[in-house]
């Protein structure tokens, strides 16, 4: 039986440093479990969050460790929503090109897999690049 989680949200702001990845992925996994997702699915949610936050640190901020990454986890009753905000170089939805896994297997190369994992492990992944800050929103449905 799935636990009923009231609609709620909480925020966490971390420095743009990879040493905090385990903290946010652990939190994401716990949040997914609390929302009623099973353990394998919660693990996938945590991996998607690792990839999204890593992208912010390494690409949006170019590895700069003096910035911040803001995460908001929302329990909507129907889904678990994870919003990640930053003030670095954002990407727009139309700039997202997912590699084809079949082509990737034929022509192995380093890199380019993070977005693919995010899209495979979450039900929805959206990007917004705004003037003041950019956002990655990932949704996992509970049903």
């Amino acid at each position: 039986m799935r636990a009923v989680v009231e609609q709620s949200e909480f925020r966490l702001v971390i420095p743009s440093q990879t040493r905090y990845l385990n903290l946010v992925t652990g939190l994401a996994k716990r949040a997914a479990l609390v929302s009623g997702l099973d353990d394998p699915t919660a693990a996938k949610v945590s991996i998607a969050v690792d990839e999204a936050v890593t992208n912010v640190i390494m690409h949006a901020y170019g590895g700069a460790d003096d910035k911040s990454v803001e995460l908001e986890i929302r329990f909507t009753g129907l889904a678990l929503e994870i919003h990640i905000w930053h003030t670095g170089h954002g990407i727009r939805q139309d700039q997202v090109h997912l590699p084809d896994p079949k082509e990737y297997v034929k022509h192995p190369r380093k890199g380019g897999l993070g977005l693919l994992l995010m899209s495979r492990f979450m039900d929805e992944v959206r990007f917004e690049d705004n003037a003041d800050r950019s956002e990655c929103c990932m949704i996992k449905k509970l049903a």
Partner: peptide
């Protein structure tokens, strides 16, 4: 746990 960074390695 292994992320895409590890797969890249």
């Amino acid at each position: 746990y292994i992320s895409s960074a590890g797969l890249g390695a």
